[in-house]
Design a protein around this nucleic acid. Structure first.
Lengths: 207, 207, 207, 207
DNA sequence: AATGAATGAGACTTCATTCAT
DNA sequence: GATGAATGAAGTCTCATTCAT
């Protein structure tokens, strides 16, 4: 084998790899569209491959099954969320809930098609790392860096993180049906609730 | 037809009706077990009828399809929840969140198999009144009876109810995997969060 | 057993027998209505028993299965047809096709709901004596009584009877969709065709 | 993509298409056999796919349901019949019933398995263009070209065509059970009846 | 690597028939 | 004799997955 053919081989492999990557990206984009439109269960492989304009068989060259495609999609979006939130939070002097929550909603809003489907279908998909776990995990990290740890004494951190996750998730699910309010206002609503709680009069007698 | 045969007929009908009611109850109990174990989508009619120890066809004598059985189940539990919560809340001098939340968790804990499945599968079932809607609706009623309405000025009541629902739902979903803490402690955790919010230090700089 | 109870028994049996006969008649009337409306295959036992306002099980006290009910219905109508045609034909001086065909159409028109369904579904029902057989049989009897048997020499009587049956059957099927023309005119049309055939010019060149 | 791979692609497509076409043809042949043997209603999809030696699902790759397969079959045969009869009739100097009837029987005999089933099951299949309609339509066209239209005055052409169709159909149904007589003799029998009618003595008194 | 025809397990649903009351 | 709840065989149809090309 001479230099030339080696080079050619490399190029050919590159071409193949590029093409492969392109097909995979097409499939993921199509999957996202289809999942968002039909929900996890009603989306068929055929729906996805048709949307991606590839043959049915091609799907299986890239994903083992529907679960894997879905999880890949979710993971991808989540890694981006994590990275972005981490970057954004680091650019501030301190990791605060305020910054974190704003960052989460900003990102989630941009990707609300996938997020709402992930939150709605999560429990249906066997192997999925539940979306809530990721959010809860991020919150726990914030909680652990609280300047006065004694403030959280008496709280079950795990449970607390979950409950807060519930508020955030519900905010995202809200966008399932409507686009208003936008991410900043949504974050403000959530933060107001989380910071001060509800009016005391809701908890006590009224006479 | 004489009196005797009339009586006999009545008894006969009663017997038939009783048998029918029993079968229906068996089916609902089986459906509940199966849905809780497999989730809505992976539960098949055959799973349910086998668990109920009746023939496949019998299912269709009582329900039009899987959806109807699921909805019946959910509706049933929800009507009981609503009634119970309303009764319990009324027995107190005032409708407060404290009482409401305790009542919800107490009931939901007792029925946690169904509740977690309802919260997890809700979006999958076409006609279902989403569980969250019911909870949010109840909360709105509480909000509207707040003694000082000015306390809630500036809040979007609908959204607020949803966010609070998120906390409560997440508390119930927590029981999907574990039984601890029990309903009273769970309610206390949730109420603490809702009453005072999180420590201020989580929202501010730490220098 | 004394005379009285014997008498009572007889009466009771009579009552039972009468009731039984009534139920059976109800079922047959219902079956006729349902078959006419839905056709043989789409008619279900439940359809019939509901129309007859009896329990499903009752059907099986009177008929072995759907086939038997259908055949009974057909047979009944046919025996009446046969009897009526025979009586009517006998009242004339000679058995002629003219009289026979008129008689058939008159009777078939009165029962056209059943006849059309019998002619349309006949082949679907396994054991059915095909309606056409009955008609053809009647025709053969007429043919055999022809005053100058030599007139029919060279004909395959069986086949001929069948072909003529085809014309008659088609006349009855015509009433499947419409009620016009009535039986007498229909008979005249058929007889015209059978008596003289079609215009010769249809069979020959036209130059 | 270079010339070579284009060619290859073409071949590949051709291969796939050829396989597909073969499977479809197998299915139609099997359907024909099964329908002829069991009748429309008693033929199941499984019967057909087993006869065609393909998987159940394959059936649905080619036909939406049983109806569509049946109609396809009927349509196919009918188009061939129509074309063939038209061609054959045109090759003669004039369109006469003689030629038409011979042509119909010749073709119907060759396809008698399908024809008898089509004539027997026609009314059972929802969307089917009833076979009789096609025959009657053809006859009407012949009638309309009769050289002396006054010959048909006083006839209801529609009804007449139907009645004649009845004769022809009955001739074809005759072959349901037996193969004799062949098409030419059958046509002669039918034409004899249609040309001259039955002996006058059948219609009149015998003294 | 891509294709798409074929596969068949499995889910749903209907309905003739039985049988305890 | 009448009833109707229950049965389950049998049929329809879908769709994830395979594999020859």
């Amino acid at each position: 084998m001479n230099e030339d053919s080696k080079t050619e081989l490399t190029i050919r492999q590159h071409r193949g790899a590029r093409r492969r990557a392109k097909t995979r990206a097409d499939l993921l984009a199509a999957a996202r569209k289809v999942f968002a439109k039909k929900g996890y269960h009603d989306a068929s492989i055929l729906d996805i491959t048709e949307a991606a304009d590839v043959g049915v068989g091609t799907f299986y060259l890239h994903f083992a099954d529907k679960d894997e495609a879905f999880n890949t999609l979710i993971d991808e979006v989540f890694h981006i969320l994590e990275e972005q939130v981490i970057t954004e939070v680091r650019s501030h002097e301190a990791i605060t809930l305020t910054v974190t929550v704003h960052s989460i909603f900003r990102h989630a809003y941009a990707q609300r098609d996938l997020f709402s489907i992930a939150l709605a279908s999560g429990a249906q998909v066997s192997r999925t790392i539940r979306v809530e776990d990721t959010i809860a995990g991020g919150l726990i990290r914030v909680f652990e860096q609280v300047p006065q740890p004694e403030d959280l004494q008496g709280y079950d951190i795990q449970l607390l993180a979950r409950l807060v996750t519930g508020v955030i998730a519900q905010g995202i699910i809200w966008w399932f049906d409507q686009d208003e309010p936008g991410p900043e206002e949504m974050a403000n609503n959530v933060l107001a609730l989380l910071a001060h709680g509800l009016p005391a009069s809701l908890f006590t007698h009224n006479n």
